[in-house]
Write a protein that binds this DNA or RNA. Structure first.
Lengths: 200, 200
DNA sequence: CGGCAAGTAAACCGACCGGTATATCTACTC
DNA sequence: GAGTAGATATACCGGTCGGTTTACTTGCCG
């Protein structure tokens, strides 16, 4: 299984139960409502934790935002690799297209409001915000993963093809969350197949 | 010149000078900082207007947000149609690809932080927010415009092709703002050309 | 047994949130 | 010249923002 530069992500190992609860509730609160719209008082109340504990564990709201994105990224990568590397041993061409199947199930299950990282970027214009590396890291991982899968197919110009597939991928996420195109992800997969076959 | 369902947008005709100043400054404030991050006091101060005047003219911050997006949409459509329908009379295939040239110049000039409508959607989870129609309207217009251009080429399955181009379009916007792919929009245009030529 | 980390409860900080109040001034129009 | 629309200035509303503080309790571990 190819995990890419997952080593760039440092997950602190032992979280206290209260801290764990905080990170569990912010996943839903931040994704559903946006980051600015959720105050620390709401987080503390929803997690059944006092603000004192919250600040003792994390130090700042920004740190919680960073952890929120890092943990979502871990779940996302596990989902994608789980689908792509699933039981049956598929050929490299099929595995590229499985990326879009992974996206489709992710959208239905966890992503109805679009990409959490794109949404977070919209709310965090500061280039020095501690959560920025998590945002850039997720996108870079998807691109790198696509590049690897494309390279395995032996396609011509794999970097350029991977970039095109990446854009179809991100565009399908936007289109699906906006509900403006029916069957957006399936359509993106069909387009990806065309581009892929033309490069083989 | 084909303007699509622009009639759906009602622009009140006579704005007072103070109101005009408000809408001018929020364009930059909202896009650069996000919507929640900009308070009405900041808007009033930046426009050189009192909060009283602001509320007399617009009634609520949400109404200002709606107008912000509607006015940006007007500028965006004018930019796109201006590029696509420019002086030289191009063929339908070329005009489809000009959409991506329009996007490229727009990104450089006005859109470094990504699509204002996607960003706004990230901050406005309420389906009943008064700005929601402006967001849906912009995306629908782009899709409809692409459909019309594709139809003119005589391509097979124009609706499906337009949907694929739409996703490349949105994905290129995301990729360009994230700066993760070099030459994102140009790459998307190349992929669009491939899909288009395969359907002719 | 002593110490410490983790937790609760609740008040407090200055600043800002969206929105409203009263009162005054100016400029244009019937 | 009276009326009115648009603007000004300024103070205020209750509530929330991110963040801090003090005081006390709990449970584990050496």
């Amino acid at each position: 299984m190819w995990w890419g530069r997952v080593g760039a992500m440092t997950e602190q190992p032992a979280l206290t139960p209260a801290a764990e609860r905080v990170l569990e509730v912010v996943e839903k609160l931040f994704y559903d409502n946006g980051i600015h719209a959720v105050g620390v008082d709401m987080i503390a109340a929803e997690a059944g934790v006092t603000k004192k504990t919250l600040y003792d564990r994390f130090g700042s709201k920004d740190a919680i935002v960073r952890l929120y994105l890092e943990r979502r990224d871990v779940r996302w990568r596990a989902h994608v690799t789980g689908v792509v590397e699933q039981s049956g041993r598929f050929g490299p061409r099929r595995r590229v297209l499985l990326m879009f199947d992974a996206l489709e199930s992710w959208m239905a299950a966890e992503n109805p409001r679009g990409c959490a990282f794109v949404n977070a970027l919209a709310e965090l214009p500061d280039p020095d915000h501690p959560a920025r590396p998590a945002i850039a890291g997720e996108k870079q991982w998807v691109l790198d993963y696509l590049r690897q899968l494309v390279r395995d197919t032996g396609a011509r110009n794999p970097r350029k093809l991977a970039a095109s597939l990446f854009m179809l991928f991100e565009g399908a996420t936007v289109a699906a969350s906006l509900d403006v195109v029916a069957g957006a992800v399936a359509g993106a997969r069909d387009a990806a197949r065309q581009l892929l076959d033309a490069a083989l």
